[in-house]
Design a protein around this nucleic acid. Sequence first.
DNA 1: TAAAAAAATGAAAACATTTGCATTTTTAGT
DNA 2: ACTAAAAATGCAAATGTTTTCATTTTTTTA
Lengths: 345, 345
Amino acid sequence: MRARSRKGAPGIVEVAKRAGVSPATVSRFFNEPEIVKGKTRNLIEQAAKDLGYYRNRIATTDQHGFSGTIGLIVPTIDNAIFAELIQAFSARLLSHDRTMLIAAHGYNPALEVGIVKSLLERRIDGVALIGFEHEKAPLEMLAARRVPVLATWNYRKDSPIPCIGADNFQVGYEAAQYLRKMGHRDVALVFPPTKANDRAEDRLNGVLHALSMELSELQNNRFFETRYDIGEAKQAIIELLSDDRPTAIICGNDVIAQGAVYACQSLGVRIPDDVSIIGIGDFRGSSQMEPGLTTVRMPAQRIAEQAADLLCGGLSVTSVKGTTRIKIDSELVVRRSVKDISSVN
Amino acid sequence: MRARSRKGAPGIVEVAKRAGVSPATVSRFFNEPEIVKGKTRNLIEQAAKDLGYYRNRIATTDQHGFSGTIGLIVPTIDNAIFAELIQAFSARLLSHDRTMLIAAHGYNPALEVGIVKSLLERRIDGVALIGFEHEKAPLEMLAARRVPVLATWNYRKDSPIPCIGADNFQVGYEAAQYLRKMGHRDVALVFPPTKANDRAEDRLNGVLHALSMELSELQNNRFFETRYDIGEAKQAIIELLSDDRPTAIICGNDVIAQGAVYACQSLGVRIPDDVSIIGIGDFRGSSQMEPGLTTVRMPAQRIAEQAADLLCGGLSVTSVKGTTRIKIDSELVVRRSVKDISSVN
DNA sequence: TAAAAAAATGAAAACATTTGCATTTTTAGT
DNA sequence: ACTAAAAATGCAAATGTTTTCATTTTTTTA
């Protein structure tokens, strides 16, 4: 469909004409108002208003190469996991006078190259990613174009690219450690595939470390793999609970934990009397569940805001040496889904 | 911060030079490959690949005035309500080779003008909004620039602007009607403020219509107002349930319904034996709840996809006469949270 | 009040593409 | 093989800004 041109929006030159000044001055007025004289300023302001002029940020882009647009690539939007991050990131960007281009790949890393290509074609000024596991191609494409890239959500001291996030190993460790402290020795793990998910991988390792175990040492019915999907998790946990029940379940995140809660309810298993449940994330709604979910809070908002600030501040391009890495502290949130059985033991 | 220019990305002319053709031909190659000869095509393709060239969709924009970017303005991202819509909209846009600029105003219509301005500055080709209640200013700004605007989520046959969505009056009617059919006569309503929320308003009216009542006829403890927030809803409903319990609660959407479920659990009120609950929306997770939530499904994905198609297909500019209005059917989803008490009565 | 310095403005080139028109090359028809 | 028509390509103008450099205006200083 060969669309008609939509020209005719008044431009800087129309404004200039009407204000009786040169286009250059109008341009300056919008970029550095201070350097144009008060009187001229008013003239231009009035003219712009009369004409209903809006800056053309796009025409601007070919000039210096910056589009004022930042990309965000997430595994999924339709899920509580990243909702808070997305919202906060977007809002913060707006306050920097930038806009957000967002795309989801549905945990299919192969889609990332298409997305990155599309972003590159739009000349984004920077990109926030989730985690570290990405195909080589998109990362290389971005590097070749010198587009700052920031991995969010997870933190690793030796991350290959700049990052900001919680130390997911520690997060997992903290959760498991708390369970131990509460006297739990027989705990089951329900995690997503760690294949292309470094956050889950790190958490899992943290958990295992706290438990002083290898994954391979876990009994069959003490480790379950399920995607971040309430329904799938619920099914898996119904199975898990159906015989030889552990005293506690540690979930890869709160979505899985929610599935766990539903599973218990469906089976008539009481939380925390019959089984304790701990999540990771502290998503919207986790605190209101019955019983309130004990979990480790991922500080999504702080991560998102700092990420936005970083990206807008012209994060220096990835370099082996001076890579920016910021660790945001997570926090154990004790509610009621974990029972203290340390004394009775 | 006066950022350094980021030029130097190879452009169409570098590609042309390397391929030994003119820039015009390269341009044509990327826009209408068929009209360039096979041999030349290969040359260009190779040159582009060698140079790592990406199209510059932005430079393109000043030419015909279309940026290939569509705006989406939602009340909130961090909430299950629009998650499915956002995801589907974004994905569909990608398949049209467009990108999505998204912003949330947090149910504060005043913020819309800033957002619209920002979008206009980026020369978006179209905008999808939620519902009909918007400040006059942003709508006028869009109209002045002839940017197609599409109201999604709600449908009204006399909508002031093109729309696509479910008929929320009918949705509400359907929910209430089902309750009546199941024998419920004493039902309580929990809805968000209908002030700037036409979806909620229409639903509420539909419910009242089915109940053959006026809002004013409802007893104090049969109508509660709460935002779309699980915690707030939970509190309200705890209050609602604390004395003179109705036989059923009809919730403005599934988020409120989830709060209702938590409220019941916290009070030890059984669903559906002690009280029935019906929601609206059928959000992610509603089907897995215990008991599964009976609700009216809002076909978010279909709405989103058609909206994207419409906007990409160059939806005609709003005109009093020929305004496009598309109604997408909703569907009652019967699960287990509503009890049939018609026979015992 | 004149000269020097500083501030404000203007003119025109530049950015990376598209596109109307002109020109060249290819194909088809005899 | 020659011509006419069609297809492919090239040239150059145009798009809406920003930016460098030059010029004009204003302010400061003596």
